[in-house]
């Protein structure tokens, strides 16, 4: 009788993913990417290179964008993990996701989740980033379809839309300088 791989040592791990508590049984050597995709069942986070060189696997841990392929799942215990599935509410997309679709920032879409998680964190820290700031912030994410242009467009567009929503002067156009 062959030994099955199920006999590999596994430990119970408590993860908090997208606001929900999850109990999973994983190997010490399982990465957060492995566990999110397989044990938790959230496949929105993608494996593009598994070596930190594409950014497709970015998730947020306590609001910071990190590479889930180079993070051991056990190291993410006790933290708030957010994946692309946790960005939107059940009924509506975030302004960033909306802008992403409208700007054409996804073509094949494989890099999208990683970019969204990076960009979402950027916008929380810098609500009105310049194009240069955006490029720098997403410079660890690779996209092979768009040439990044519509990605930068989408982030800038989302920032502008959110800024307009938040701004008390939003309805009092055209005097945006008063808000500065």
């Amino acid at each position: 009788m062959q030994q099955t791989p199920l006999s590999r040592p596994r430990k119970a791990l408590h993860l908090r993913v997208n606001g929900h508590d999850r109990e999973v049984y994983v190997r010490d050597a399982d990465t957060l990417l492995d566990v999110l995709r397989e044990a938790v069942g959230l496949t929105g986070t993608k494996r593009g290179c598994d070596l930190g060189t594409c950014g497709c696997c970015a998730v947020q841990i306590d609001g910071r964008p990190v590479l889930s392929c180079l993070t051991l799942a056990a190291e993410a215990q006790d933290a708030e993990i957010t994946t692309v599935e946790g960005l939107a509410g059940p009924e509506r997309f975030t302004p960033l996701q909306q802008a992403w679709a409208e700007a054409g920032a996804s073509q094949c879409g494989f890099c999208t989740a990683g970019f969204l998680m990076t960009a979402d964190a950027l916008l929380r820290e810098h609500p009105a980033p310049s194009r240069e700031q955006i490029k720098a912030a997403v410079s660890g994410n690779l996209c092979r379809c768009t040439g990044f242009i519509k990605i930068v467009d989408a982030i800038a567009r989302s920032a502008a839309a959110q800024h307009a929503l938040r701004s008390p002067c939003a309805t009092a156009a055209p005097a945006p300088t008063q808000c500065a």
Binding site: L42, T43, G44, T45, T83, V84, E85, L87, A88, F93, Q97, W100, A101, E102, G104, S106, Q107, G109, T112, A113, L116
Partner: peptide, 11 residues
């Protein structure tokens, strides 16, 4: 938007 954008931005 591409018709499959929504699948893609939602993961």
């Amino acid at each position: 938007p591409l018709v499959d954008s929504w699948e893609k931005v939602s993961g």
